[in-house]
Structures are given as C-alpha cells and as structure tokens.
C-alpha cells in the first residue's frame, strides 16, 4: 500500500515538475509547480515528516506561488513568442543534464545503504513539531536568530529594489 502511494506521488511530482519546464505559458508553469510541491509534500508525509510536509504546502503552495503568479500577472507576460532556438545550446544542455542524472544514478547504485528498507520507528506516535521546535530553540538557537535577521534584510531589500527611483 505504501509502495503504491510512493509511486503515485512520485509520478505526480515528477510529471508536474517536467510540465514546469515544458510549458510555454508561465501561468501554466506556475500552477504545475503548485501540483509538484503538493506531491513533494505527500512524499515528506510518507517519510513521517508531517511538520515539513505542512510547512511545504503553507510556504511554497501558499506564499511563494502567490508571489510568482502575482509577478507574472503584474508583468503581463503572455505565451512567449517563438524565437529561433539555438540547437547547439539546447542539445548541449540536454546532454549535460542527462550526464548529470547518469552520474547520480551510478553513485546511488554504489551506495550499499540505498538497498536497505527504512527501519521501523520505535513508536507510531510521531510528535515531530515538538522535537523540531525543541531542537530549533536549543541547539540551533543562533542560526534561528540569524535567519530572522536574514528575513528582515530580505524584506528591506525588496522594498528598496521595488522603489521606482533609487536615490
């Protein structure tokens, strides 16, 4: 059952991920990206990472995709006009991407741990919000505060960048 669900969600994620790259209409790409992230969030939940799965839906499908759609509609981008495609560049890019995947495939094939199934958890009750929160505010307190400063810097940077005239 879980194997069937894994394949369904992996196919949804990879299919819509490919649709992001293939679609010529930016809005269709953005909506495919939402579906891709939904499949990814289901895969996180199949790995007992419920908190990360929920965060994935809230942050990506909620906030980031609204931002993408907002910008696409603000810039009023239509289906991009067909230009003369550079065959050498496209072919070279495809070959590089394919070679990259073949490398990953063989590296994972060499990994002995990759053939083992996942070990069972000691208890079926996973309180991962509690555990992640505890780690975040004890061991990772300094990085957490630095992330806060980073988000503040990003907010100020966005406001400065989107002002009409820089003085």
């Amino acid at each position: 059952m879980s194997a069937l669900l894994f394949w369904i969600f992996a196919l949804i994620m990879l299919g819509f991920g490919a649709a992001v790259v293939i679609n010529r209409n930016p809005i269709a790409s953005a909506l495919s990206l939402v579906m891709c992230f939904m499949g990814l969030s289901s895969l996180f939940m199949s790995l007992d990472a419920f908190f990360i799965g929920i965060i994935q839906v809230l942050v990506y499908a909620g906030a980031v995709m609204v931002l993408f759609l907002f910008i696409i509609m603000l810039l009023d981008l239509r289906v991009e006009t067909r230009r003369k495609t550079n065959v050498v560049a496209v072919g070279g890019g495809a070959v590089v991407a394919l070679a990259f995947f073949i490398q990953i495939f063989f590296v994972i094939g060499q990994l002995s741990a990759a053939k083992q199934p996942f070990p069972p958890l000691s208890s079926p009750k996973v309180d991962d919000v509690h555990s992640v929160g505890l780690l975040l505010f004890s061991n990772y307190n300094l990085p957490f505060q630095i992330i806060g400063v980073l988000v503040l810097v990003a907010t100020i940077g966005v406001i400065v960048l989107s002002k009409r005239e820089l003085r």
């Binding site: 895969l43 495939f105 990759a114 199934p117 996942f118």
Partner: peptide, 8 residues
Amino acid sequence: VTLGHYLI
C-alpha cells in the same frame, strides 16, 4: 520502498 528509491 527503499532509501534508494527516494534518492533516485
């Protein structure tokens, strides 16, 4: 489903 499936 093994770790390798997720990594691939």
